[in-house]
Simulated assay, not measured.
Amino acid sequence: MADNANVRLGEAGGISVIDFGAFLNGSQKQAVADAMLTSFKDSGFVYLINHGLPQDRIDSMFEWSKAFFALPMEKKMLSPHPSSGTHHRGYSAPGVEKVTQHVYDADELAKHRAKAPDVKESFESGREDDPHMPNIWPPEGVIPGFKEASLDFYWTCRAISLDILRAMALGLSLPEEYFLQYHSAAENQLRILHYPSVPVQKLRDEEVVRIGAHSDFGTITLLLQDKVGGLEVEDPNKPGSFNSAPPIEGALIVNAGDTMMRWTNDIVRSTIHRVRAPPNITTEDGMTPERYSIPYFLAADFSTLIDCIPGTYSEERPKYEPVTVKEYILNRLAVTY
């Protein structure tokens, strides 16, 4: 194992901050890979500095996000998210989606849905030729340039995601290209999110929720967040206890999803996380600032059978039952709407 002391820059909220530039330029690939795997084992998350995603493109996508969500509701509703959660594209108004964890019992699902709704609005897009989930764009002339900017950012994020998969493979002592063979179809999702301003006390009392506690269901998630904060990650050593994952300027947050957890037979964590009121917030009017974030969900090809990587299981460590990506992800998406 390579010495990763000089690629790990510290931590925030119990999550390692790592210089990914040393992987991209080839100078310390194994050290970065090892440090990342350690962070994914410990917390399921990692902050990456020098991640290769150009800052001007990040800034531009946030501006497009603000422009879209500033449109009148009737304009945003011209590209509505279908009522079925299995077609995860288009615009969702505040309170429509209720992010859920593994809830398959009908009575339990009904109880979960009866809880406070997620007070956020979102817009999802993917690749243009996706046969499973075709994009649902605003009509031409509503917000010129939005579609092109979203697609450009989608493919830019995919390129960075593949570099991260290469590092994860090295950390797991696999060939660097191992995971890429299962991610050739770009079955991914770009989501822009807006959290309207709400009373701080209502968030703290859970009368309203920004995003409830959940894990992601793909391979990895890239997250860009503004300076407001509010992301919280469950402490793996204290179930039910959450730590703040504060914004770090210039950093990309990456977390492992359920698919990666199953692939590695729980060596890599898919950690529960949520969005609540920003920590230590003080406002004269008692309202939280509005918040914007951009997650990019990387998923393996829908036809991929997720079976535990050889060497991650034994008689003492039984493995997960194999499942196709399509079956797993569509089941999870279906219960969010």
Rank of each mutant, 00 (worst) to 15 (best):
Thr221Asn: 07
Gly218Glu: 09
Ile267Asn: 01
Leu224Arg: 12
Gly218Tyr: 08
Ser173Met: 06
Leu231Gly: 03
Ile253Ala: 05
Leu252Arg: 06
Pro196Leu: 07
Ile220Ser: 07
Leu224Phe: 15
Gln181Lys: 15
Tyr178Pro: 02
Pro175Tyr: 12
Ser173Pro: 00
Glu234Phe: 10
Ala245Leu: 08
Ile211His: 02
Glu187Asp: 14
Ala186Val: 07
Thr271Cys: 05
Ser241Val: 15
Leu174Met: 09
Gln189His: 12
Val268Ala: 10
Ser244Gly: 07
Arg210Thr: 02
Glu234Ile: 08
Ser184Tyr: 01
Pro239Met: 08
Ala167Tyr: 13
Asp163Tyr: 12
Arg166Gln: 14
Lys238Asp: 15
Ala186His: 11
Ile220Gln: 07
Val233Ser: 00
Asp226Thr: 08
Glu176Arg: 14
Met261Gly: 01
Gly212Tyr: 02
Val198Cys: 07
Ile211Phe: 04
His194Asn: 12
Arg191Gln: 13
Thr259Ala: 06
Ile220His: 06
Thr264Phe: 01
Val233Tyr: 00
Gly229Leu: 04
Asp266Asn: 15
Asn188Thr: 10
Glu234Trp: 11
Pro247Ile: 02
Gln181His: 14
Ser270Met: 03
Phe242Asn: 04
Val254Cys: 08
Glu206Phe: 01
Pro247Phe: 03
Gly240Ser: 10
Glu206Leu: 09
Thr221Ser: 14
Asn243Gly: 04
Asn237Arg: 15
Asp205Glu: 14
Asp205Asn: 12
His183Lys: 08
Arg262Val: 01
His183Ser: 15
Tyr182Met: 14
Met168Arg: 02
Lys202Tyr: 05
Leu165Asp: 10
Gly171Ile: 10
Val268Ser: 04
Asp205Phe: 01
Leu165Phe: 13
Arg210Trp: 02
Met260Ala: 06
Glu249Phe: 06
Ala167Gln: 10
Ile253Met: 12
Ala251Cys: 11
Gln225Asn: 11
Gln189Leu: 14
Val208Ser: 07
Pro236Asp: 04
Pro247Ala: 03
Gly257His: 05
Thr221Pro: 06
Ala256Leu: 10
Asp226Gln: 09
Ser215Thr: 15
Ala169Trp: 11
Leu231Cys: 06
Asp216Ser: 10
Met260Thr: 02
Tyr178His: 15
Lys227Cys: 11
Val254Tyr: 07
Gly250Ile: 04
Val228Ala: 05
Phe217Ile: 14
